[in-house]
Design a protein around this nucleic acid. Structure first.
Length: 365
DNA sequence: AACGCGGGGGT
DNA sequence: ACCCCAGCGTT
């Protein structure tokens, strides 16, 4: 590992000025808009974020509008973007700011105290909006630095992260922080890509140790990942006349705060009708029977980061009245008409299920 | 220090 | 069928 190489970042900045993409959040100096963009961009690609960013800024143009919104609407606007705690944290942070009443924080210490704001977001927003000298280290920067110095450390390890943070600060040096951070990230996105890096046109090709070794894609080093489990769940589409039962998920954990159809977990195969009706009786105090004269619904496959799931939609009819309260202690439930489903924030998986069950286009209009 | 947390785009 | 992405909070 060679770390005493001098890296001339002037070439990088020239490249950035010539090749940077035009992005909606680059046409503003509004710290709020920059903050929203940085949170949306966490673990999410630029092309995915753009339409969400535009809609969000149109609906919530400033901190005050966001703080005044219902969580329901906030989640609906975020629906499909994933990592929903980001939306709930933004909402909470906006309310924290309104409570403080001191305007948008221009100091890193104050900004980083907000919900959902960690080291990366602090460095990015504070450098871009206010010029603070903080190195933003995201996935792109980790890759660029790993290659630049042919870093022989697992970047998912704390030692690897620490070393990269040191090198990132060193590279920032006395450059313009906003220009430097954005240049590094843009380089990672456009040139120093995970696969097929464009070393021939890279402004840092001269000092790059990984290129010198001839194995740029060998970096960054990363520990192998564990295999992801796959389970098979039944999804209960329970009719009471023309209405369907949906439930709101708890405020923490997977898909927190979103609505879903009752789910019956199957480890290795789809739960049987007997299991489904037992579980619904236990968990919701409901008696159900298979809906007559309905063709079987196709299963829905969905992948999450840490597991995969096959979902088996089951059309059911409520028999009699609910015998207990519908788990009002832990889970809010509601009977809704099919054409009202679109009003409730739901995950992509549940939208797919609704679609597969012929409930029409339940996606947000 | 390790893990949970979504979804989509690229190859 | 993988890999990766402008990370953060919890345990």
């Amino acid at each position: 590992m060679t770390t005493n190489t001098t890296v001339c970042t002037e070439a990088l900045y020239r490249w950035y000025r010539a090749h940077a993409r035009e992005l909606p959040w680059r046409n503003t100096d509004d710290p709020y808009a920059i903050w929203i963009s940085e949170v949306m961009l966490q673990q999410t690609q630029v092309s995915t974020v753009i339409p969400y960013f535009e809609r969000w800024i149109a609906r919530f143009p400033a901190v005050k509008a966001l703080a005044a919104a219902d969580q329901h609407e906030v989640l609906r606007l975020w629906e499909g973007l994933g990592y929903y705690s980001r939306a709930r944290n933004l909402h909470r942070a906006a309310q924290q700011l309104v409570e403080r009443g001191t305007g948008f924080p221009s100091e890193p210490a104050a900004f980083s105290r907000l919900s959902g704001v960690g080291p990366y977001t602090t460095a990015a927003v504070m450098s871009i909006a206010f010029g603070h000298r903080l190195a933003a280290v995201d996935g792109n920067v980790k890759r660029v630095i790993s290659r630049l110095y042919a870093l022989d450390l697992d970047i998912t390890s704390s030692a690897g992260l620490k070393r990269i943070a040191e090198l990132a600060e060193q590279l920032l040096s006395d450059a313009d922080p906003a220009l430097h951070n954005q240049s590094m990230m843009e380089l990672g996105a456009l040139i120093c890509r995970p696969k097929d890096p464009q070393c021939e046109t890279c402004p840092l090709r001269e000092p790059c140790q990984a290129r010198l070794l001839g194995t740029p894609t060998a970096y960054p080093l990363r520990a192998p990942k564990a295999p992801t489990p796959h389970h098979h769940d039944a999804v209960a589409l329970i009719y009471r006349q023309t209405e369907l039962l949906i439930a709101q998920r708890p405020q923490s954990g997977l898909l927190a705060g979103l609505w879903h159809f009752p789910r019956i977990r199957g480890k290795t195969r789809a739960p049987t009708i007997a299991t489904i009706s037992n579980q619904l009786a236990q968990n919701y105090g409901l008696r159900v029977a298979p809906l007559a004269n309905t063709p079987p619904c196709p299963k829905v496959d969905h992948a999450y980061t840490h597991f995969r799931v096959s979902l088996y939609p089951r059309l059911l009819a409520l028999v009699g009245a609910p015998t207990t309260c519908l788990r009002e202690d832990t889970e809010v439930t509601r009977w809704v008409a099919a054409d009202q489903l679109a009003d409730y924030p739901m995950s992509v998986a549940d939208r797919k299920v609704a679609q597969a069950a012929g409930l029409g286009d339940a996606r947000r209009a």
